[in-house]
Nucleic acid binder design. Structure first.
Length: 222
DNA sequence: GATTGATCATAG
DNA sequence: CTATGATCAATC
């Protein structure tokens, strides 16, 4: 039985704070969800579990998890020093019909306006069920962070508009990066070609680099 | 050890 | 296929 959806940010935070320190196996148990041996075949398991516990609306829409609160939920794996172990996926990147698309209208901007980060122990030597949930961090980007994100986004989107999708690597961008986001490298979707024509490319997604998310978590505890 | 490119499960 | 949830693992 899924939890009901919180009606306010304070209610959401109360639930999030209540989860701090408990094991994933305990949360899973409350919902009758089996705990996998590892995450090789269920990479989104932790995220889905936290969504269920906090009452996020299910679905696969390009909108924040708590649309009525304007809050996006992100679980993030951390090591014993509280450092993020992985980059953070934000959303898929639009590869066509992006003429005149502005930062303020982008999905990236809207999703990152308000994010609830839920750190979870992610070291592989810790059994999945034994990993504990950390203290939640409700974050809104500062002016500086917003400027960094905007700059990277605009640089990447310009390359896409110029038909250079396939030349973009994860090295582009200081805080934001573009990487493959698909079932595998054979999946194709429409994109813009060098001469403005439509061609096929591997789908891409926007990710936040580790150094950036690390700053967010650190700032929350200082 | 960090990073980049590849991949897994599921819903619609 | 697209979008959600991400982590894996080869390579730098």
């Amino acid at each position: 039985m899924p939890s009901s959806s919180p009606t306010s940010i304070s209610e959401l935070m109360a639930r999030a704070n209540h989860m701090a320190g408990i094991r994933l196996a305990d949360i899973a148990g409350e919902h009758g969800i089996p705990v996998p041996e590892n995450l090789k075949r269920e990479k989104g398991w932790v995220g889905q579990l936290i969504e269920t516990e906090l009452g996020a609306l299910a679905g696969s829409k390009p909108e924040p998890d708590f649309a009525h609160l304007g809050v996006e939920l992100k679980t993030i794996p951390i090591d014993n020093q509280g450092k993020p172990m992985e980059t953070t996926y934000i959303t898929v990147a639009p590869l066509t019909d992006i003429g005149g698309l502005r930062w303020e209208q982008s999905v990236v901007y809207h999703k990152l306006r308000h994010v609830l980060w839920i750190p979870v122990q992610g070291e592989r030597h810790i059994p999945v069920g034994e990993r504990r949930v950390g203290n939640p961090v409700l974050w809104q980007p500062s002016e500086l962070e917003l400027a960094q994100l905007r700059q990277d986004w605009e640089e990447i989107m310009e390359l896409i508009a110029l038909g250079k999708v396939d030349t973009i690597t994860a090295k582009h961008g200081e805080v934001l990066q573009l990487r493959p986001k698909a079932a595998n490298s054979r999946v194709l979707t429409e994109s813009i070609g060098r001469n403005g024509e439509i061609k096929l490319s591997n789908p891409r997604g926007f990710y936040l680099k580790i150094a950036f998310t690390q700053q967010i978590l650190r700032r929350a505890f200082t």
